[in-house]
């Protein structure tokens, strides 16, 4: 009974609410990359191993307006934890965080100009000039 009730409730919610906004990891359509696993995305954005599946150097870009949602979806951490993580790597001189960008427009421009760049956008705002290689549910 409970399961049926949960299902009905879930279905009602699914119909009643707009599609929950997922986060899409995007690259340039010129990039040789068509898909990315979650662990590859973690390696690239967390500075562990910045290589794209096609062998090229990965250039991750953070977008400030979506950053908190992205890292919550990617590694289940908030911005204080992400900064704490980077403080260790930056101040030991081991690695540098992704480049910081202020807006979706900046991200779009950077990505379309560089086949090695990757960033993230709200799934709802995906357009043809960027290729979605991974979708993170929230």
């Amino acid at each position: 009974m409970n399961r049926v009730r949960t299902f009905l409730l879930a279905s009602t919610l699914a119909v009643a609410l707009p599609v929950s906004a997922d986060i899409a990891v995007v690259v340039s359509p010129d990039s040789g990359v068509t898909t990315l696993t979650r662990s590859e995305a973690i390696n690239i954005f967390m500075g562990r191993y910045r290589k794209l599946p096609n062998g090229d150097l990965a250039l991750p870009i953070d977008q400030s307006t979506l950053k908190a949602r992205f890292y919550r979806a990617l590694v289940d951490k908030d911005l204080a934890e992400i900064n704490s993580y980077w403080a260790r790597l930056v101040f030991s001189g081991e690695a540098s965080p992704p480049q910081q960008s202020d807006s979706a427009a900046d991200v779009r421009q950077l990505i379309t100009h560089n086949a090695n760049a990757l960033s993230y956008i709200d799934s709802a705002s995906a357009t043809d000039d960027m290729r979605v290689v991974l979708t993170l549910g929230e």
Partner: peptide, 19 residues
């Protein structure tokens, strides 16, 4: 080696502007 062609110099953790 494949060269990166970024249109402008970018910082790894500073603010970047596309203009």
């Amino acid at each position: 080696m494949r060269r990166l062609c970024i249109a402008r110099p970018i910082s790894r953790w500073g603010r970047a502007r596309a203009d």
